[in-house]
């Protein structure tokens, strides 16, 4: 599913060149739930942004489902993201003026689906995250855990093969975090979604099939202390 070969990301900041990722190679098979861990500034969010097509590597190849997205233009990346990736953010990033249903429906507006088909899919996604009864609520009327579940529904409504999550439980209490992690795990196991999750939390990483550590832009070995849940 994901194949990164010798990818490097660097940018200039003032007079200096910063390289958050250097010569990194990584393979993630389809359906795997992978956790990326590491201290702040280790490059894990940069890697997540590259994998999800939000950013492009400076060098190296990045193949996802056989497509080298490192060669894509900005327009191609936007279109690719809409079809292939669902993004889950730490702070949910829901649109505050839209209801839960409208937030979930957003990615479908880019597709050629009819209004009725969009409604069906959005309702199914909300049902999957257990929020079908809250579809008319705006984000301000939901708890943090509920907001994150709406964000997950939004991420999976267009049925992307890849879900990326940046600290999805970082802003939640333990009970909500457990619920969200369970949801992600079931999406991986029961729905075959490939999930790449960045987290600081070892407990969250333990929910994944595999955890990788990054430090100073380089990949360390799999954490032997983490077991597949």
């Amino acid at each position: 599913m994901i194949s990164c070969k010798a990818i490097t990301k660097s940018y200039t900041k003032g007079a200096n060149t910063v390289t958050p990722l250097e010569n990194l190679s990584l393979k993630v098979p389809r359906g795997e739930f992978l956790a990326l861990m590491g201290p702040s500034g280790s490059g894990k969010t940069t890697l997540l942004n590259l994998i999800s097509g939000i950013d492009t590597p400076t060098s190296g190849s990045l193949e996802i489902d056989g497509e080298d997205i490192a060669r894509f233009s900005r327009k191609q990346l936007t279109s690719w993201r809409a079809r292939k990736v669902g993004y889950i953010f730490q702070l949910y990033h829901l649109i505050p003026v839209l209801t839960a249903f409208e937030n979930v429906e957003l990615p479908l507006l880019i597709t050629s689906l009819s209004r009725a088909e969009r409604r069906k899919k959005a309702e199914e996604a909300l049902d999957l995250v257990g929020l079908s009864g809250r579809s008319d609520h705006t984000p301000g009327e939901l708890s943090g855990g509920q907001e994150q579940r709406v964000a997950i529904a939004r991420a999976l409504v267009a049925d992307p093969a890849l879900l990326v999550a940046d600290e999805p439980t970082g802003d939640l209490d333990r009970e909500s975090a457990t619920h969200i992690l369970g949801l992600l795990r079931s999406l991986s196991r029961e729905h075959g979604k490939t999930i790449v999750m960045v987290t600081h939390d070892a407990r969250a990483a333990a929910a994944a099939d595999r955890a990788l550590h990054l430090e100073k832009g380089k990949l360390l070995t799999t954490d032997p202390n983490l077991t597949v849940a």
Binding site: R74, R81, A82, Y87, H93, I95, L106, R154, A158
Partner: peptide, 14 residues
């Protein structure tokens, strides 16, 4: 700005 970026991240063109 973050919301506008989110819209782009989920697939809306600039």
């Amino acid at each position: 700005i973050r919301e506008l970026a989110t819209l782009q991240a989920i697939g809306f063109g600039r």
